[in-house]
């Protein structure tokens, strides 16, 4: 029997989500707009702040915007496509995880595929609009290596966020209470990570490098992007950040072994 690839399965899931979505069109559009305007207000904050002060710790308005847009894009990609992990308490609570475990596909894959939150693309839209302005305005000569740098920032950034979602889901295997503190590492990073982390000082830099390697997808490659350094280490720092996914995957395996299921 020929095995159907995960990608094909994912496409089928996506088409199911789209068809469900079509049943609730008005709600979709409203949520999409809501997400966009939320992101837009974050953008306005940066605009007013930097119009008043000119630079933040030596970063220009356009440079901060590049940082903002890349983090927002990474976050919204993670949230759109890995929303299943983000709402994992519900997946456990309603017994959906039992169902996932009796199917012959990777569990994380199924959790991720089980929900695609296309309304979160509102934030992505804001990120794209910001890029459209900031990329030409930044005065950076976008040679192939700089393009690669930006792509790595966004893609690896999204994967780091997914890793944090996996840790969140891991905790759900043990308790479903008091999980709000995890938001510091997701929504908190999205907002505060709109500015390069080195403006917050050394302690924050350490935490954001060694606890969750956000700096490796943000300030380090950003320095390469805006020409503060030529070091290839900075360019490829986002790939290094992917090492973070290994402990995430191990924690997940531990969590599944402790899965208690619900009654009945």
């Amino acid at each position: 029997m020929k095995k159907i690839s995960n990608l094909t399965v994912y496409r089928k899931f996506l088409s199911i989500h789209l068809r469900s979505l079509m049943q609730y069109k008005a709600s979709f559009i409203m949520t999409l707009l809501g997400q966009f305007s939320g992101a837009f207000s974050a953008f306005l904050t940066i605009y007013f702040l930097l119009r008043r002060f000119g630079t933040v710790e030596g970063y220009t308005y356009q440079e901060v915007l590049l940082c903002f847009a890349s983090i927002y894009m990474a976050f919204s990609l993670a949230e759109t496509f890995a929303r299943g992990l983000d709402r994992f308490p519900a997946v456990i609570g309603n017994g959906e995880f039992d169902r996932i475990l009796v199917r012959p596909r990777n569990e994380i894959f199924q959790v991720i595929a089980s929900k695609t939150e296309l309304t979160r693309l509102g934030r992505l839209l804001q990120a794209i609009v910001t890029f459209c302005y900031a990329i030409p305005a930044s005065g950076i000569d976008f040679t192939p290596d700089k393009i690669l740098c930006l792509v790595l920032m966004v893609v690896c950034g999204a994967l780091v966020f997914v890793g944090v979602f996996v840790i969140f889901a891991f905790i759900c295997f043990f308790t479903l209470e008091g999980l709000e503190f995890m938001n510091i590492l997701t929504d908190g990073v999205r907002e505060h990570g709109s500015y390069p982390f080195d403006i917050y000082g050394k302690e924050i830099m350490t935490v954001m490098t060694f606890v969750v390697p956000y700096t490796l997808v943000q300030v380090y490659p950003l320095h390469y992007l805006i020409g503060r350094t030529d070091s290839l280490l900075n360019l490829f720092a986002p790939l290094l950040a992917l090492v973070f996914l290994i402990p995430c995957a191990l924690l997940w395996k531990l969590g599944v072994r402790h899965y208690k299921s619900t009654g009945s």
Binding site: M1, K2, V9, K12, R19
Partner: peptide, 14 residues
């Protein structure tokens, strides 16, 4: 029918 088709893909049924 759509659910069944998805299951066909998940289980790789010929």
């Amino acid at each position: 029918a759509d659910s069944f088709e998805l299951l066909q893909a998940i289980y790789s049924v010929d």
